[in-house]
Design a protein around this nucleic acid. Structure first.
Ligand SMILES: Nc1ccn([C@H]2C[C@H](O)[C@@H](COP(=O)(O)OP(=O)(O)OP(=O)(O)O)O2)c(=O)n1
Length: 367
DNA sequence: CACCCATGTCGAC
DNA sequence: TTACGGTCGACATGGGTG
């Protein structure tokens, strides 16, 4: 694990680029890919947008009505997310990546780490040409552009990647890594978002360089042992995490927005029945048993709650999800007053154990 | 103590 | 006088058990 060379490949404005690939005629227009909640015709949020739309300050996660307002007067095009299509394209690219790396760690639909130490014989010089070759290959075969960051570990590769996109290639050598990170704001580190940045600011930490100098013991006191040490190491460009194949998902969930805000149990269960059916289909396709069933609620004020129950035995039937979801909602509704906007169903604690005796229904369903 | 459970927070994408 | 997605994982905390 000495002197590794790690790449992070991140597809450019991915969902929106997929839409451009499907219909190149729209390439010069602002493109927004949205998740539509179904509450009203236009309610939902931005999943991503192309760089033309980004010039108008459209951002991932933004409510669609805001994106529409910002793009008023342009010939912007809006799409509903089409995960099947994006997954297909992603799978083809990931397959190509496999041929270029000793190990591949796919971290999302559009991001993967490649350990290419052997392929480039430990040389960052060769890594540049190698990265260009991968980019050209994918561009030719699939037609998608992406950005590559190269570094001595995953952490540095990630930040290198973020530093120049789209269609970028940034290489940070081990001896440069600390100096490369030092001037950047702390939120460039994986795991530092808005809340943590504010806390760090109050501690007088603004840049990664500030964090690197900060007393490690103090960090542990403030953030806990695991995260404190992680922050200390990360700020010093130290990261020994190997590039490893991702295992199977540890939870499967579905969440949806209700047509109206409500506290009515039957109205809620009508929605969770659909969600449960979806969760169940995926669980049974993968032939998984689960041990924990959870519900999720988002209130009108956008605050959220979860409730969960761990079963005595692993289960695998739809009924096992449904009855527990009902139980959990009955219990929760009795102890709160806020109206509910969105609800979710989640199962976790997977195994391939067969439920012991009883639950004949699941036996028959599995035939 | 080690491990499990329930819940919450935060963050990434 | 509005209006705002979905899915996943890591970790902390505070309770329990053997
Ligand atoms: N809040 C978010 C962020 C991202 N995504 C989805 C849509 C993106 O296309 C994909 C990848 O996310 P990235 O953060 O990598 O962003 P993009 O690939 O869209 O843009 P960039 O070119 O900045 O990487 O994940 C999402 O649904 N919701």
């Amino acid at each position: 694990m000495q002197n590794r060379i790690v790449m992070l490949a991140d597809f450019d404005y991915f969902y929106a680029q997929c839409e451009e690939l499907r219909d190149p005629a729209i390439k010069d227009k602002p493109i927004v890919v949205g998740v539509y909640s179904g509450r009203t015709e236009e309610s939902g949020a931005v999943s991503t947008s192309n760089y033309v739309a980004r010039k108008y300050a459209v951002k991932s996660g933004m409510p669609l009505f805001l994106a529409k307002r910002k793009l008023e007067g342009t010939d912007a095009v809006f799409f509903h997310v089409d995960h099947e299509y994006y997954d297909q394209i992603s799978d083809r690219i990931m397959q190509i990546f496999r041929g270029y790396a000793t190990s591949l760690e796919q971290v999302s639909v559009d991001e993967a780490y490649l350990d290419v130490t052997e392929q480039v014989e430990g040389s960052f010089e060769k890594a540049r040409e190698y990265a260009q070759k991968i980019k050209a290959d994918v561009k030719t075969q699939v037609g998608i552009s992406f950005t590559i960051g190269v570094g001595p570990n995953k952490l540095v590769a990630k930040i290198a990647c973020d530093s120049q996109k789209p269609d970028g290639l940034t290489i940070v050598r081990p001896e440069e890594a600390r100096f490369f990170l030092a001037p950047l704001d702390v939120d460039r580190l994986l795991g530092v978002g808005k809340k943590t940045m504010v806390r760090m600011e109050q501690m007088g930490i603004k840049t990664i360089g500030d964090l690197a100098k900060y007393d490690c013991q103090r960090l542990i006191e403030v953030f806990g042992k695991v995260i404190g040490i992680y922050f200390h190491n990360a700020a010093n460009a130290v990261d020994n995490e190997a590039v490893v194949e991702q295992g199977e998902a540890e939870s499967i969930s579905r969440i949806g927005t209700l047509k109206q805000d409500t506290r009515d149990l039957e109205f809620i269960l009508q929605k969770t029945t659909e969600l449960t059916a979806d969760v169940y289909r995926e669980v049974s396709e993968k032939n998984l048993s689960f041990k924990t069933v959870a519900i999720y609620m988002v209130m009108v004020d956008l605050s959220s709650k979860t409730r969960s129950i761990t079963l005595e035995q692993p289960a695998k039937s739809k009924a096992a999800i449904e009855t527990n979801v009902r139980l959990l909602f009955e219990k929760y509704l009795a102890e709160s007053t806020l109206e509910i906007r969105r609800v979710g169903v989640k199962v976790s604690g997977f195994s391939r154990e067969e439920p012991k005796q009883k639950q004949l229904s699941s036996f028959f369903q599995s035939i």
